[in-house]
Design a protein around this nucleic acid. Sequence first.
RNA 1: CGGUGAGUAGCGCAGUUUGGUAGCGCAACUGGUUUGGGACCAGUAGGUCGGAGGUUCAAAUCCUCCCUUGCCGACCA
Length: 559
Amino acid sequence: MKTTLYSLFTSYNIVCHKNIIFNFMIKGGLIRRLSSGIYIWLPNGLRVINNIIDIIKNKLNRFGLIELFMPAIQPLKIWEISNRFFEYGDELFKLKDRNNKILILSPTHEELITKLVCNEKHINFPKCFYQIQNKFRDELRPKLGILRSREFIMKDAYSFHLNKKCLNEFYLSFIEIYKEFFNDINLNIYIKEARCGNIGGDKSHEFYVFSDYGENKIYISPQKILYPYSYYVKKKEKLCFKIKKIKKIFYLYKKNKKNVVKIKKDIDISKFIKTFFIKIFYKKKIKKIFVLIPFNKDLDIIKLYKLYFMSFKIEILDEVKILKVFKCYSFFLGPNGDYKIIADYSLKNYRNFILGTSKNNYLYFNVNWNVDFSVDYFTDLCKCQFIYIKKKKKCFYKKRSFMEVGHIFKLMDKYSSIFCNKNKILMGCYGLGITRIISALIEHNHDDRGIIWPVSVSNFKLGIIPINMYNCSNVYKFSFFLYEKLSNLIEILFDDRKLHIGKMLTDFELIGIPYLVVISEILLLENKIEFRDRKNKRICFVPKNEIFIFLNKLLKLSL
RNA sequence: CGGUGAGUAGCGCAGUUUGGUAGCGCAACUGGUUUGGGACCAGUAGGUCGGAGGUUCAAAUCCUCCCUUGCCGACCA
């Protein structure tokens, strides 16, 4: 590519922004902001995206995944069936068509793909489909450039299996694919188990990269074992008022538990289900629901908030209020009346469990779903089990922030049980944030002059910079010769503008081209070509007739 | 959604306190001289000062409302 036929979009104005990544992206002509959280991808950036997409596509195709493309606009109905219309809340982009029908700009595609695949007769399972597509999320506050934007590019894959063993094996092999992929693009990633969020499921792993701008924090022990930090510890402190209320309930629970065990020693606590009564304050209405969770787990108030939109107030009735309303201790509280009942996902497989009756000293035994009573829906309500670090040990651990770039989920039958009638099908889903990967790459690959792309993803592999080409026929001839010989083999940028060398170098350095060739009259007289390796900060002079051999070795061209 | 800034030429900004001709740097265009780190000289073009209303002889500047947007918090895989 010649620069006169191309558009660089580089800019030299100092952008006052704390975020180095964002600065380099603007200066290097990768993106331009259109509106809050919405960005235009310019040629320099798009080329990198396309290279990353090529690499991941090759990997997945080789592994037997099948590519398809689902629409970004989805009807409201399937989101209502899975109940995620409410779970997602305000983060879901909503549209109205000319008939006032509500449509959704999809942040993810579990519902659609499950409905598609599960109702198709001729599919032999296991199968895994993937797509690379723009996703939408109406962020409360978009920030940090493309790190948290309202439209972003994601690769999402969905696998379907007939049994658990098959799913588990596939899930594990996906981790290996991701490892290989991140290795190919020169990113050091770390993997840790994570909570499932509103995507749901049984288990999930997230892939992350260290980043000064990352929004999550982690502790690293001297043995390089990673301990998840932030999330809960942080939130407990910040939301103290509401959390304290829960703590109080737990405390009372435990007290009661002791009392009850003394009276009835034959209760199997592992089969006991805790019941909470919760008041949700809408703008003017009050909604009351029962929430069921296993006895050994804690209710996650954040997840509950998310379920019923963040902006509403939620009150969990404490011991005193329960006594007033139901005339029983909270330990004996059980679902009754016409209130809606929701239960934690992990309770779905419970058999013959124990439940409160809302009458002191009485409990239901051997209760089963659907037989004795049913809940409105199952969802994720419990806190994840995290390893907490004791305060004394803290000083030995390094605290680092990180950025999530990939997340995979064992969905099990969360969606297939809703959309699939015949077979019992288990699912997994596998996300990869393409645009976030670019942020991570920039943060880990730059110097004070600009971005330095890893060769595998670089927008241009090699830049040719001729000095005063239009006045020196030697330089003109040789640079064109070099360009024409190489341009079919690799992505190459040839600066044919009538500019000073400083300007050309600045541009190419901002764009992030990893290797540069400088051609000047003085060096040509000595039959030499200047070669710059930006990453290793190395400048060397290669004999003119050996330049192709040299480049061949470096870039593995097929000359 | 709370706190707090900002909106003036394509981009980055000054001017607002104290109302009185619309400015600077980069980019663009024309001509010339330059060519190893963002060139220089001379010239040209580009603006409803975010929008609406108000005060005034006179508003980018003062007042009111609205829109857009940055940062911090809250939220967020």
